[in-house]
Simulated scan of single mutants.
Amino acid sequence: MEPIPLSVFEAAVQVAGSALHYKSSLKRLMRNSGVSANGTERYADLTKYQMFRSTWDDLDRAGARGRKVQHNLITALANLDKPDPNVPDVPAGERAIDELRRLAQQENLLVSPEDLARAERRQAAATAAAESASKREQLAALNDRFQALHSHPDRQRRGYDLEKLLAALFRWAELDYHGSYKTETDQIDGAVTLDSFTYLIEVRWREDAAVATDLAVFADKVERRIDATRGMFISMAGFRPTAVDRYRQAKENRLVLLDGGDLAWILEGRFDLTEALRAKVRAASIQGDPYVPVYSL
């Protein structure tokens, strides 16, 4: 990207100083054009003219990235509809905008608001597509790890690795996750925050389904916390029907139950993790059933 000609820069200085009344307006325009938050505040004690000149010098020193921001600044100033009505000399502000617009058009620097909006939409769409592809690749990698765990020879190690995989999955979903920790009275495999509730996490990978005693011990951990705490029990082998029935009938159940099948659906990308958890919670709240399979939601 070519440097901005001196004549265009000087015209931009005049617009920044004479067409914008408040320093906050200039700082907002600079921030929207790509100047960093620190950069917009660095010269806040100077006049608007001096602020613009000093910030421009910083952008000069930033190389190609700085030149791109300079071009954005020229476009933003030249595309001003009119001066702020509170400036001391409105006609002078109008002349400054017209002169910058003329010089910018002469140098083929000016992008129309419509073209700029289209470019921003294209860039936003491209960024969103790239982020979506990256997220799919990350989820596929987590699923590969999950599948590999099924043939892990060390069963105890497999359980620890599953905890690590779940931590990575919660973070992939951008949920507020806390890893395993111990207190004076118990050990927690992890905790995650969803919709203002904190869910303590219990992870089990055993050959047999979890029994009523397993659920009772975990429920006790949850009940010793404040009311905004719930429990998320993840048992790869599922749960004994008699154990689940006890919590379907419980007066104050605070547990949500997941099994290996639920994880498979989520890791294969067939159900979004956050939405799956919310659907599980809705089923527990509305139907009184803490163990509704993801595939049926």
Rank of each mutant, 00 (worst) to 15 (best):
L110H: 03
Q106G: 13
E114A: 13
N143V: 00
S134I: 00
A119K: 13
D115Q: 14
S134E: 15
E114S: 12
R158E: 13
S180W: 06
L149R: 03
L149W: 04
R121M: 11
A173V: 01
R121Y: 01
D161Y: 07
G159T: 01
L149F: 03
R171P: 07
E174F: 00
K135T: 06
A130R: 15
D115M: 11
F170H: 06
A141W: 05
F170A: 05
L109S: 10
R102A: 04
Q138H: 09
H150E: 15
L110I: 05
L100P: 02
R101C: 06
P113N: 09
Y160T: 12
E137D: 14
R118P: 10
E174R: 11
T127A: 15
V111A: 10
L103H: 05
Q123A: 12
G179Q: 10
E174H: 07
A148F: 04
W172S: 02
L116F: 09
R136H: 08
Q156V: 08
K135D: 15
A133S: 14
Q106K: 13
A126L: 09
G179T: 06
L175V: 01
Y160K: 14
L139C: 05
L175T: 06
Q106S: 14
T127K: 14
A141P: 05
A126K: 11
A173T: 01
Y181C: 09
L162T: 01
L109V: 01
Q123M: 09
P153C: 03
E107G: 08
A173M: 03
S134P: 06
A124N: 10
S134A: 15
Q156W: 04
L103N: 05
S134N: 13
E174G: 07
R121K: 14
L110T: 02
D144H: 11
R102C: 04
E163D: 11
S151A: 15
Q138L: 08
Y177M: 05
V111N: 10
A125N: 10
D115T: 02
R157N: 08
R157E: 15
A129P: 09
A148V: 01
L162E: 05
R171V: 05
Q138G: 08
E114K: 12
G159P: 05
W172V: 01
A104E: 06
S180K: 11
A124Q: 14
A133G: 09
F146K: 03
E120N: 11
G179V: 01
D154C: 03
R101E: 06
L162S: 04
L116C: 09
R157I: 03
L100M: 07
Q105L: 13
L110D: 02
L169P: 03
A126M: 10
A125T: 09
P113Q: 11
A130N: 12
A130P: 06
R101H: 08
Q138K: 11
R122T: 06
Y160A: 14
R157P: 04
L169H: 01
R121F: 00
R145K: 12
L169F: 02
S112M: 09
A167G: 13
L162F: 04
A126W: 00
L110G: 10
H150A: 14
A133M: 11
E163I: 00
G159L: 05
E174N: 13
E107P: 08
S132L: 12
N108D: 15
E114P: 05
D154S: 10
A141Q: 13
